[in-house]
Design a binder for these strands. Structure first.
Length: 221
DNA sequence: ACGAGGATGCTCT
DNA sequence: GAGCATCCTCGTG
């Protein structure tokens, strides 16, 4: 049971509980799939929280040339103390990793795997489910509900997520992840989107038949 | 429907 | 300089 009340959705909170930190201390590919059907919540002081149902994720992990930790991982084979971009991905699971992509868009990741093993799950798309008015307000040019948060940059815009939320614990808010009591989703798989290395790894996961995924793509399995 | 191109700021492959 | 885990607009069919 989550330790606070979200206005207007008391019934639904009884069906969802905060995800324990141990959940994230597992391989990114596992966490990515199990986050489908969970809820991403952003609490706003003095206002109604906003939330989205996660419908699409991607895994980035060790020995993965598309992972931000990859080059650092190579360097550390020679010098264990090397530093550089993606350092956070070796750190504690259950913390956020947020970075600016193409100079304009903040992308939200959750760090996974034990300390010392790099891993993260990119949240790629959500379906608005709490405080939807805020989604519309933050995305003034959007016409269709499906387009509010059907992409990693779109969902951070819609939910007001930026660098202020970087490296925060998901156990304490204002960002939280909730899991349903009974998670019943049909998971589809494909290659990851927007990368040039590791394109053949089937590490993009989405809820089959959801209208809120970033794009349709033939599934690999 | 689909493709090209521009916006924009990091880090370093 | 190149290369990015992107999004939007404006062409063309």
């Amino acid at each position: 049971m989550i330790p606070y009340k979200i206005m207007g959705i008391q019934f639904e909170t009884m069906m969802y509980s905060q995800i324990p930190m141990s959940f994230y201390e597992r391989p990114a590919v596992v966490v990515a799939q199990e986050l489908l059907g969970c809820r991403l919540i952003v609490e706003n002081p003095g206002q109604e929280a906003i939330g989205g149902l996660i419908v699409e994720t991607e895994a980035y992990t060790t020995n993965d040339p598309a992972c931000h930790a990859w080059h650092l991982e190579q360097k550390r084979k020679m010098n264990p103390n090397a530093s550089g971009k993606g350092e956070e991905l070796f750190g504690a699971p259950g913390f956020t990793y947020i970075y600016l992509n193409y100079g304009m868009y903040w992308l939200l990741n959750v760090v996974t795997d034990p300390i010392g093993t790099p891993g993260a799950v990119l949240i790629r798309a959500v379906e608005p489910c709490i405080g939807e008015e805020q989604f519309w307000k933050n995305r003034p040019n959007v016409k269709k509900r499906e387009d509010l948060a059907n992409g990693p940059g779109k969902l951070t815009l819609a939910m007001g997520i930026d660098q202020r939320y970087h490296q925060m614990s998901l156990a304490e808010g204002p960002l939280r992840l909730l899991q349903p009591r009974h998670r019943r989703v049909e998971v589809a798989t494909s290659g990851r989107i927007g990368i040039s290395q590791g394109v053949d790894l089937p590490w993009r996961f989405f809820i089959k038949d959801s209208n809120f995924v970033s794009r349709s793509k033939p599934s690999l399995t």
